[in-house]
Design a protein around this nucleic acid. Structure first.
Length: 97
DNA sequence: TATCTGACGATAG
DNA sequence: CCTATCGCCAGAT
């Protein structure tokens, strides 16, 4: 099942995210048809280019380790609310999808 | 085929 | 809110 399909599906889902809309890695994986592959999604987004990767966050609204500053900046630029502790507000995660 | 890696997720302390 | 652990998956070596 995995292979080109996985990459294609994940890219399609991430590309469908609109400004201000935030989804979790797990959500993207499930939406792409690979439930439980959240880790693989993160790995793919990390090396992939040309995708709104900043609209995808870890469960609980945590940002990508090693790029938190850029991640937060891009999200805030789209009007995404934060909880003050450097995490995306729970309300914003509900809108994802 | 076996083993390791990682922008994950959930739970426990 | 923090770190520590374990489980899960796709890709690379």
């Amino acid at each position: 099942m995995a292979g080109p399909d996985f990459e294609e599906a994940v890219r399609a889902v991430v590309r469908s995210l609109r400004p201000g809309d935030v989804a979790t890695y797990g959500e993207v994986a499930a939406e792409a048809g690979f439930p439980g592959a959240a880790r693989a999604v993160g790995n793919l987004l990390r090396r992939s280019t040309g995708l709104p990767w900043w609209r995808v966050v870890s469960a609980g609204g945590r940002l990508a380790p090693g790029a938190e500053a850029e991640h937060a900046a891009r999200l805030q630029a789209e009007g995404v609310p934060f909880t003050g502790t450097g995490k995306v507000a729970p309300a914003a995660l509900r809108r994802a999808r």
